[in-house]
Amino acid sequence: MVNNKKNGEMCVSTSLYCIVLTTLFFLIISINSFSQNISKHYTSLRQSKGVLYYILPQNGFKNKDTKNEFIYDITYLTENDSLILNFSYFDKLIREIDSIAIIGGDRKYISLTNKIFIDIKRSKWHYRYSSNFLFNDIKTLFTQINSPTIILYSKQGLIELKIKFKTWRKQSAITNKILTLIVYNK
């Protein structure tokens, strides 16, 4: 009788524990997925020459045929008009990238590229380049609803990179929020 009571209490407490744990699990998942917590997407550093903002690497841009990936990050020092867009591009072929263009809506933003390094990652070449764009141009780009197209110009031909609408909608909302925050803090 006593044992049965003890077992019953143990079962109830275990079930309660499981319920609390499950609730916490879904609470954390929902907080992280649905609220737009931008703090984990950027860092800022206050200096004597303005504030240095860094938007963490973002992916989603891919070549339609080869599925080659493009990852970019943004660095911006508030005393400047332009920002640095560093990017990684992975390709099986040897490329000599000389410029990058971002087409958003009816506007085309072009920048020359500076090579940071070229490395090998698994079976692909890892091309790491740096480019400069005007802050206001990039701000305008990230307010657009339609997903943009990135074109990499190389001596071996151009590479077209596209992003899924759903990914762009999420990515542009976060980046636009960060860029707006930068403008307000200027």
Binding site: T43, Q47, K49, L52, Y54, D73, T75, I84
Partner: peptide, 9 residues
Amino acid sequence: NTNSSKVGT
């Protein structure tokens, strides 16, 4: 070192 203009991750 003072001031930084680049960030790497």
